[in-house]
Amino acid sequence: MIFTLFGDYIRYYGNEIWVGSLIKLLEPFDHNEQSIRSAVSRMSKQGWVVSRKEANKSYYSLTERGKKRMEEAAGRIYRMEPAEWDGKWRTLLYTIPEERRHIRDELRKELIWSGFGLLSNGVWITPNPLKEQIYDIIDKYDIKEDVYFFEAKNKGFQANKQIIRSCWDIDHINMLYEKFIHAYEEKMIANAMKIERGDMSDQDCFVERTLLVHYYRKSLFVDPGIPKELLPEKWLGERAAKLFNEYYQILAKKANAFFRAIYLAGYDNCPRQKQTIAKEE
């Protein structure tokens, strides 16, 4: 949820927030102060955020690593349609020894998040051009000596669409999109009418939009972003993306107003910072 707030709001407001404002923003979701402070502390230890002190206040901002992850996530969340395929497969193999098993486990998580699929033991593939992400991961874990990375074309006996089905559960991903559409299609129409009548507050819209992003992201990060040439005929990803973006915009004005009011209150004694934020807006 904190990642959602950073990606959807905070990074557009100077990339920094007072922890007290963060607590206030998460109150409508029934998150208590202690759990929020613990979560922010974990994010700091993991290298996603960094803190600074001003008087007796703690402010948190994304690290460079955090910013990069947010940009990657935003590229996937707000993508309207699948990319075109260049016909190449990217293959990554690694031979990380048992004594560095913890790195191997972390590497698997990073590869899945980035959109790689497991073809066989220690062999990961993707049809997407993820060279930059791979180089970042290799540098992060210092595993240049343990990794092989290739770009190639399929000259074998399995069709490209069959390779996709061997590495990803396409039917499950499509089912997740179907569930998202079922959950939000009628809800969007009903709440659009409520907003028009003035029956949804700024806070209501903020909560709804944050939960919308949170829900959609869960489906999306199971989806590796397969190019359109490799997708099945009855693919629901584009329909889900269109629904998400339309509902997101319907909620935007009032949701942003709620966030802005709480966010700026965290800088009440910092007029210079408020001026900086105003310029960035």
Rank of each mutant, 00 (worst) to 15 (best):
I137E: 04
I77E: 09
N128R: 12
W113R: 15
D223E: 05
E145H: 14
I2F: 03
Y263T: 03
A241P: 11
E246Y: 12
I138A: 03
V207S: 02
V49F: 13
T276N: 10
V40C: 01
L264K: 11
P232E: 05
G156E: 11
A265K: 13
S114D: 06
G47Q: 03
I189E: 15
E196F: 10
L118T: 06
A261K: 14
K234Y: 14
Y177V: 09
R272Q: 12
L111F: 02
D223A: 06
V49P: 03
I134T: 05
Y9D: 01
T4C: 11
E233G: 09
T210W: 09
Y12M: 08
T4L: 05
R165H: 11
R260K: 15
E233K: 14
C205Y: 00
Y135P: 00
I103G: 00
N56Y: 13
N269L: 15
I77V: 14
S166L: 12
F258A: 08
A190C: 09
K254P: 01
I226A: 03
G198M: 04
D171Y: 06
M193E: 15
F116S: 08
A74S: 13
Y13W: 14
G66M: 05
K254N: 12
Q203F: 04
V49C: 04
A240K: 06
E246S: 09
A252H: 11
Y12W: 07
K179Y: 02
N160D: 15
R217G: 08
L130R: 08
M70H: 09
Q162T: 15
L130F: 03
G87K: 05
P227Q: 04
L264F: 13
S51N: 09
N32T: 06
Y135R: 15
L92Y: 03
M80P: 10
A278H: 13
N191G: 01
R209A: 04
L62T: 05
A261T: 08
H214V: 03
E33L: 06
K24N: 10
N32W: 09
S120Q: 15
N15D: 14
Q203P: 02
S120E: 08
R76S: 11
I96F: 01
I112A: 07
A74W: 12
W89V: 00
G75T: 05
I134S: 03
E110V: 04
I173W: 13
R104Q: 08
A252V: 01
P28A: 09
R11Q: 13
K109H: 10
Q273C: 08
